Amino acid sequence: MRSRELLLDAYGRIQEELRPAVEGLTPEQLTYRPAPNANSIAWLAWHLARVQDDHIAEVAGTEQVWTAEGWYDRFGLPFPPSATGYGFTSEQVAQVRVPSADLLLDYAAAVHARTAEFLRGLTDNDLDRVVDENWDPPVTLGVRLVSVLADDLQHVGQAAYVRGSLLPG
């Protein structure tokens, strides 16, 4: 197995785990927060897709799916197009309200499709390319891809936990 196949499988698991955490929930259930400052499923799903979209577009040198395919307008959130949810306050998290679970899942699927397209074109040598010199040591493409993957899987697990606290059993 090459790195490309490993990454494709790993990123595919985000989609596999996100669907059961989000699917079938009402807009009200998607905004449920188990504690006043906790993240909602809507925010978790939106944020993980936004960060993946932002980071993959940056390393691929493409426009984000969020703006290129009109998702920003479809969501109608009160944030600038560049917002990913990173550093959001509790009040901003509460503003992430979506009309349906399908909208979240469709956006995440579009991001995954763009990610998979990018990953299919990678070679093992590409993973050593420096993509961010603002860190010491500088961040390589491989490190960036694993970082996004780890963050997304963590947020998927959090969304599944929130769903479980909302709909136990």
Rank of each mutant, 00 (worst) to 15 (best):
P137F: 12
R144A: 06
R74N: 13
A116K: 02
L44F: 04
Y32R: 06
W43H: 01
V156P: 12
A57E: 05
A45S: 11
L141A: 00
V156R: 12
L103K: 00
G24M: 00
R144T: 04
D136P: 04
L6P: 05
G121H: 08
V148S: 03
Y11G: 05
Y107N: 00
L127Q: 07
T84A: 05
R19H: 12
Y161C: 08
N37I: 06
F88Y: 14
Q95L: 15
L153E: 01
L153D: 06
L127A: 11
D151P: 03
P34R: 14
P99E: 15
E23C: 13
P80W: 05
A68E: 10
V96P: 09
R19K: 15
L105P: 10
P36W: 11
L44K: 02
W71D: 07
I41F: 05
F79V: 02
D132Y: 02
Q15C: 13
T89V: 09
L6A: 04
Q64C: 02
Q64H: 01
P27M: 07
P99C: 08
D136S: 14
D126T: 03
R33Q: 13
A101E: 11
V65N: 08
L6D: 06
T67Q: 00
A68S: 10
A42P: 10
V146R: 06
G121I: 10
L105I: 15
S82N: 01
V143K: 07
G76E: 12
R50F: 05
S40P: 14
L25D: 00
L166M: 12
Q15G: 15
Y86C: 07
E133W: 03
D9K: 13
W66A: 06
H55W: 11
T140I: 07
A159C: 11
T123R: 10
P78E: 05
A150D: 08
A101R: 09
E17F: 02
L18N: 00
V143R: 03
A57T: 04
D136R: 06
